[in-house]
Amino acid sequence: NAQDYSLKFQSSDAAGVPNFVLEQEWAKRVSDMTGGRVVIEMLPVNSIVEHAETQDAISAGIIDGHITDTSYFTGKDPAFGLIANPVGAWSAPSEMLRFVEYGGGKELMNSLVEPYGLHFIGAVTPGLEAFVSAVPLDGVADLKGLKMRAPEGMVQQVFAAAGAAPVNIPQSEVFTSLDKKVIEAADATVFSTNQAMGLHDVAKHPVYPGFHSMPMLEVSINKAKWDSMPDDIKAILEMSVRDLAHDMDARLAMKDMEAVAKARSDGGVTIHNWSAEERAKFRQIATSQWEKVAARSENAQRVYDTLVKYLTAQGMI
């Protein structure tokens, strides 16, 4: 069969990270399933444009799609920050994925990205992030005055509301700043990756499972490209993304558990696990921030309404 679609996708993950390998495998599967009619080249973060510029690049037709953290586009519309990481809403990937697939999330996402010239195919997530800390943290009270790094998006705001002192340093300075005790804690990523990057060598009190963040990675494609595709290819793309979500969840969770087991047996690192009450307290603070974000734009308000309606119907709040 002839190759009908040659697509370039940029990831928000670096080339050597397990997540990126999973994304490459997905691209390969799409090619297999379409009998070579669709060939996707997965490009690592920053290879064509910087991580926060992919949305513009897709709508300009420079690249065809991305697998990226939606909160990078918070600066375009606060709605992206809220839907990407409604801190406190999800305690497991399956909860978020149910909302996206069946609870109106997909339609909502498309109403947000389509005006920018993108089509949202589906969502995946690396899972619940672990919290990196050099000091023991066993509950919300311990966050008071904690000097910590948090990136753009809602996470920073929630920690500020919880009494911590978020510092807006970039990812590239997280390690040295933790090492030299400029900061005491950091929002980084999942346990296994934090471990691999050596963050637990300099911050020996990680909180796992994490309590603060589960980012949504959107798989989106240029809308005109999408509209030009036949239905069978569209269906394959949608289904393969749904499978990627499962793949990513399962395999990264396994890696996390492996890393946790290794950290436990090696010693030197104390893993803290928050009680249900403390988690609930943090969720309470987080959800109180949603409304503030919602007030910032019409779209954010729409995200808020849809989310609250869904969570209420499911008895989750």
């Binding site: 586009f73 600066g75 753009e152 807006n168």
Partner: peptide, 29 residues
């Protein structure tokens, strides 16, 4: 100019300078 259009005008036609998306959320970008 194409980049500036995307960073200053929302798809619905409103003027909105792209912000940093942080808690401070300055329109620096």
């Amino acid at each position: 100019w194409l980049m500036v259009k995307r960073a200053t005008i929302t798809p619905s036609g409103d003027i909105h300078l792209e912000t940093t998306g942080s808690a401070f959320n300055a329109p620096y970008p």
